[in-house]
Amino acid sequence: MDELVERFLAGDRRALARIISRVESESGEGRECLRQLYPHSGKAHIIGITGGAGAGKSTLTGALAAEYRRRGKTLGIVAVDPSSPFTHGAILGDRIRMQELTLDPGVYMRSMAGRGALGGLAPTIDDVVAVMDAFGFDYVIIETVGAGQDEVEIAGLALTTILVNNPGTGDDIQALKAGIIEIADILVVNKADHPGADVLVSQLQALLSLAPAGARRPPILKTTALKAEGLAELADAIGEHGAYLAQSGELERRRADDARQQVLSIARQILLERIRAATSEEELAELVLRVAARKLDPHSAAEQLAGNVLR
């Protein structure tokens, strides 16, 4: 076994940090680490926290983590911020709101850049979360800025997805109407110290009442993350949701769905890489030109590329 993996399994946080970097850079050695660690994952309760920019996700994550620490639980936290689509650089500032946790040996916090050309969740987020899970934390919290698509992605990754809203910002309700509400297992109205919190709660309730009968209604909770208010209730609600998943059999179904999606998506990626490797730049350029000139349709062109590796 890899020496780094041995240190990881013995609880060495530096080894954890290193392995995350390896996995994040999509290197062969990262994959090898993951192969050895993967059987140790699957025990943590994965929590996704998403919502608009500045909704208080980091503050809430920090306050929720502190609540779990009071309950004697350990946590891994990963906060994803978008990379610049132009330079691929990023400023990752979520630690600013979680300072008190830095020196707590029961918490490991990692900032992650989206690294995707089009924004969205980092391509290796599943692997990073699996590594944290395998380290043995009771909870892994993923913070992401919601921009529509990510929220759906995060819901596939987390067992419990929390959607953070703020009072007095009408656009939230618009986003909720657009279907994002369906991915939320728990709705949080954060900044409840601001006026309009109760109005937002009743608006959300009205919206939820439109859901089909028999469907699970996500609870709506008020928090003031800045003053650490409402966190015990939130932790309880997360626990109840976990119990619901286990009892209803949905836990197993979700895990299976998630595994299927992950395997198919990686397989797609592998095939694409093989095709790229088996195709010369000239051949690709020529095909693309013919498609652009409407002499060939894109499906036939893609078939021809795939033919370079599949027969």
Partner: peptide
Amino acid sequence: ARALRDGGCEVIYTG
């Protein structure tokens, strides 16, 4: 931090 970001680095800023 911004200059390094624009230079393509991932910059963690802790406050």
